[in-house]
Design a protein around this nucleic acid. Structure first.
Length: 487
RNA sequence: GGGCCGUUAGCUCAGAUGGUAGAGCAGCAGACUCUUAAUCUGCGGGUCGAAGGUUCGAUCCCUUCACGGCUCACCA
C-alpha cells in the first residue's frame, strides 16, 4: 500500500540522483560523537558529526535541526549565509526528518543557551523513504513496538536504555563467572534427543542425514557431559526453545544461563547464587533494593531458605511428607477448599507443584530459596541421602517468579536410568512434556561423573526484574510475531 | 485453548441513535535568522482490519475470520 508520503520521497530521491548526488553515501569521517561534540569548547571549528535528523525548524534563512546518534542528541544550525544559497535551498527541499546526515562546522551557543553546531558544510548520508512516528507521543502501539522494534528504539528513549541494560546484566554475569574460574562453552542447539527439562520441543529435519531433530529445550545434559569430560566449572548462555503456550512470562525462544560445578553440592551453589546475584544488582543497579512496579524488593538481607514441605505446610496446614499416595493428598487439598483445575488427573508431584504455585508462590516478593522438591518433579536431581522422597534442589523465587532452579546433580547411573524410564513411560502414555530415554547421556554417566551441582536461570525474567518490566517481550529485541497480510 | 477488550490518515487519537469521517504531528505550497512539541496562512491525504449478513443505505448493528493486548489454565 504505497503512501503518498513515500511517493513524494521517492521523487525526491530520483531528483537527487539526477543532480549527480548519491543519496546513499559510502562513509562519513566523524571527528566526534554527538555526546563528545556537545562537550567541546565554544568556537571549536572543523567539528564533523553525523546522525539521524529527528526534528527540523525552519526560519527563513536559518534552520535548526536535531541530530541523534548512539551517544545522544545535538542541535545543528544552518545559516544561508554560511552554507550558501544553493546548499541551503537543497536542505529545505530535499532533506527530511529521519534522514542520516553529516555536518561540519563550529561549536557555538545559541541565544537560548544551547550548544549547537554552526554548519559550514553538510552531506546527505542516507535518504529515508518513510516518515518517523509522531515526534511528541512517539510510538505506543504495542504491536508496532514489537513488529518494528527499530522504530521503538529510535523514538522512545527508554527502549534503548533497557536493551543496553540487558547487555550489561549478561556481561556482568559473564565477567563474574569468568573471574571465578568458569569456562564458557557452546553445546548443540540441534539435538537428536531433547532433554534437560519437562517441555515439548520444536521439531525439524536434517535432509542430508534424513534425520528428525529437535531444538534444545535446555543445555543441561550436554553441560554435564562437559563435566564428565574433565571441565570443572562450565557455563552457557543457551538460547532454548519450547513449543508451548506464550504469555507475558513465557516465550518459545528464550535464554537460559546454566552452569555446572564439579564437587559442589546444592548448598555451595546457594551461597554462590546469592553472591552472584547481589553482585549483579550492585554493578548494574547500584543498589540491593529494587523497585518493581509498586513494590520494593530487598535483596540486601540474608536470603531465607525454606523447604517446599515447610512452605506449603505454613501456608495450608498440609504436610505432604506424611502422605504416601496421591489420593489422600488430593482429598486433603479438597478439604482445605483449595481449588486446582484438573485435580483428579494429577500425580503426586504435580499435586504438590500446583499447590505451591496456587497458594505459596504468589506471596513471595523478597528473594527466597525453596528447597527439597519431591523426587517426582526432579528427574535429574540427586536424591536426598536422608529423605529419599525429596531431592537436593533449590529454586530462587523473587516477586513470585522462579528466577533460578538448581540442584545437586544426579550422577548415579542406575538411579538415573530408573527415573528416565519412568519419564519415558509417562511420555509413551501421551505426556509430551515428559522426558524421553537418552541412552547417550546415560552412557556418559556410566563412564563416571564427579559430584556436581548445576544451576539454571531464566535470563529474560531476570532482566525483566531488573528493568521493571512485566512482559518478557519488552526485554527481547525482536519477539516472534505472527505475520500479517502485507502488500 | 477459554474469557474480556482492541484494530479509524504515516504516527497519536477524536467521532457519528446507521446517511461513506475529523484534529494535532508528519507531508505539500508559502512567510519567517534563535527555535527546540517553533509559529502563522493555505492545501492534499482514509476501500474506518477482512469477508459475509440485516437494511433503501453499514465504517457504526449481527456473524465469521485475521492480527494484537490483558487474563485463566500448562511450561522458566
Amino acid at each position: 500500500m504505497g503512501t503518498h508520503e513515500r511517493d513524494i520521497r521517492l521523487n525526491k530521491l530520483n531528483t537527487i540522483r539526477e543532480q549527480g548526488i548519491n543519496p546513499y553515501k559510502e562513509r562519513f569521517q566523524k571527528s566526534h560523537s554527538l555526546y563528545q561534540a556537545k562537550k567541546l569548547p565554544l568556537n571549536t571549528s572543523g567539528v564533523r558529526i553525523a546522525g539521524r535528523i529527528m526534528a527540523v525548524r525552519i526560519f527563513g534563512r536559518l534552520i535548526f535541526a536535531t541530530l541523534k546518534d548512539f551517544s545522544g542528541k545535538m542541535q545543528i544550525a544552518l545559516q544561508e549565509k554560511a552554507v550558501g544559497k544553493e546548499r541551503f535551498a537543497f536542505f529545505k527541499k530535499y532533506i527530511d526528518i529521519g534522514d542520516f546526515f553529516g555536518a561540519e562546522g563550529t561549536i557555538f551557543k545559541t541565544k537560548m543557551g544551547e550548544i549547537t553546531l554552526d554548519t559550514s558544510g553538510y552531506e546527505l548520508l542516507s535518504k529515508t523513504l518513510r516518515p518517523l512516528p509522531e515526534k511528541f507521543h512517539g510510538l505506543s502501539d504495542r504491536e508496532l513496538l514489537y513488529r518494528q522494534r527499530y522504530l521503538d528504539l529510535i523514538m522512545n528513549d527508554g527502549t534503548i536504555e533497557r536493551f543496553l541494560k540487558r547487555t550489561r546484566i549478561m556481561k556482568t554475569m559473564r565477567d563474574y563467572l569468568d573471574a571465578e574460574g568458569f569456562f564458557e562453552v557452546e553445546t548443540p542447539v540441534l539435538q537428536t534427543n531433547p532433554s534437560g527439562a519437562n517441555a515439548t520441543p520444536f521439531t525439524t529435519h536434517h535432509n542430508a542425514l534424513d534425520l528428525d531433530l529437535y531444538l534444545r529445550i535446555a543445555p543441561e545434559t550436554y553441560l554435564k557431559r562437559c563435566i564428565a569430560g574433565g571441565f570443572d566449572k562450565v557455563y552457557e548462555f543457551a538460547r532454548s526453545f519450547r513449543n508451548e503456550g506464550l504469555d507475558p512470562s513465557h516465550l518459545q525462544d528464550f535464554t537460559i544461563l546454566e552452569y555446572y560445578v564439579a564437587y559442589w553440592n546444592y548448598e555451595d551453589n546457594m551461597r554462590f547464587t546469592e553472591k552472584l546475584i547481589k553482585h549483579v544488582l550492585e554493578q548494574v543497579n547500584g543498589s540491593l533494593k529494587l523497585t518493581f512496579g509498586e513494590k520494593v524488593i530487598d535483596f540486601g538481607k540474608d536470603w531465607k531458605k525454606v523447604s517446599l514441605r515447610d512452605l506449603i505446610f505454613t501456608d495450608t496446614g498440609i504436610d505432604f511428607s506424611t502422605y504416601t499416595n496421591e489420593n489422600d493428598l488430593r482429598k486433603a487439598i479438597k478439604e482445605e477448599g483449595i481449588e486446582i483445575q484438573d485435580l483428579s488427573t494429577m500425580g503426586f508431584g504435580s499435586l504438590i507443584d500446583n499447590l505451591y504455585k496456587k497458594v505459596s508462590r504468589p506471596k513471595i516478593d523478597d528473594p527466597l530459596f525453596i528447597t527439597h522438591h519431591p523426587i517426582e518433579l526432579s528427574p535429574l536431581a540427586r536424591r536426598n541421602d536422608i529423605n529419599g522422597r525429596v531431592t537436593d534442589r533449590f529454586q530462587l523465587v523473587v516477586n513470585g517468579w522462579e528466577i533460578v532452579n538448581a540442584y545437586s546433580e544426579l550422577v548415579d547411573p542406575v538411579d538415573q536410568r530408573n527415573r528416565l524410564e519412568e519419564q519415558a513411560s509417562l511420555h509413551r502414555k501421551g505426556d509430551s512434556e515428559a522426558m524421553v530415554m537418552d541412552e547417550d547421556f546415560l552412557t556418559a554417566m556410566e563412564h563416571g561423573m564427579p559430584p556436581i551441582s548445576g544451576w539454571g536461570m531464566g535470563v529474560d525474567r531476570f532482566v525483566c526484574l531488573l528493568t521493571n518490566q512485566e512482559n518478557l517481550r519488552d526485554v527481547v529485541l525482536f519477539p516472534l510475531m505472527k505475520p500479517t497480510d502485507q502488500q
